[in-house]
């Protein structure tokens, strides 16, 4: 059966490892300070540190796969990786497609605009709103202004356009927004209005049915919170607790 042999060879050559001993973790790599790619080409950030700590607890070897945000759940379902550690909000809508671990941090939404700009938070439809596509921030922006909301592939591109003045108001998760406001590019910008508390919890997404993995991750998460590892990682990025 020479043909089968060639086909098998081709499959082996062209596909990922067939029998993964390692845990493949999907992340975006464009969401500072949670997950980014640096000069060395490696992923880094809060999500990555948490994932590494969890893997160490579970005695698993972790590899990271980067994937654009709007394809990150389809990628999980297509088994490009086994878990998403990419600051994903636990929502009812997503729960229909994937399973989540216990939350590993909490989040709210905020609005960012140029400092001193007159933003009518009661009537945001007057302003050009932007957010990252396929996020709860995008859901919120779309609720406010429908298809007029400008939706970006990455949070970075949304920042670029906020800086360029293409959008007046960025709807964003509060914590990355906070981080951006600290950065050189964020100077001259500020949060406007109140935080939008939507009781948002961030979890690790898994394929439905991967209950074993979910329980192991939950146990590891509890362990790193209890022994202070989590607090150490937290302090590296934020001067307050985000758990």
């Amino acid at each position: 059966m020479p043909h089968r042999l060639t086909l098998t060879l081709l499959l082996v050559l062209f596909t990922g490892p067939l029998f993964a001993e390692t845990l493949r973790i999907g992340t975006e790599g464009a969401y500072p300070p949670f997950n980014t790619i640096g000069k060395d080409g490696q992923v880094a950030g809060f999500d990555i540190d948490v994932a590494r700590a969890l893997c160490e607890r579970m005695n698993a070897e972790c590899t990271f796969v980067t994937q654009d945000w709007d394809g990150i759940i389809p990628g999980l379902l297509a088994r490009k990786y086994d878990a998403i550690v990419a600051s994903m909000s636990i929502t009812e809508e997503r729960k229909r497609a994937v399973a989540f671990t216990d939350p590993y941090y909490s989040n709210s939404l905020s609005l960012i605009a140029k400092a001193g700009a007159k933003i009518d938070t009661a009537n945001l439809a007057k302003h050009a709103l932007g957010a990252q596509r396929a996020t709860i921030a995008a859901d919120h922006a779309t609720e406010l202004v429908g298809d007029d909301a400008k939706l970006y592939d990455t949070q970075e591109n949304a920042y670029l356009d906020l800086g360029a003045g293409r959008i007046d108001v960025l709807v964003t998760d509060t914590l990355p927004g906070y981080d951006w406001l600290q950065s050189p590019q964020g100077q001259g910008y500020a949060f406007v209005g109140d935080k939008i508390d939507i009781d948002d919890k961030i979890g690790i997404a898994l394929r439905k049915g991967d209950d074993g993995l979910r329980q192991r991750l939950n146990a590891a998460l509890k362990a790193i919170v209890d022994d202070g590892t989590y607090a150490k990682i937290n302090a590296k990025y934020f001067p307050f607790s985000i758990y």
Binding site: D70, G71, P74, A97, R133
Partner: peptide, 11 residues
């Protein structure tokens, strides 16, 4: 299409 997929997860 990409926006719809972001909601339905059915690429």
């Amino acid at each position: 299409a990409r926006t719809v997929i972001a909601k339905t997860y059915l690429p």
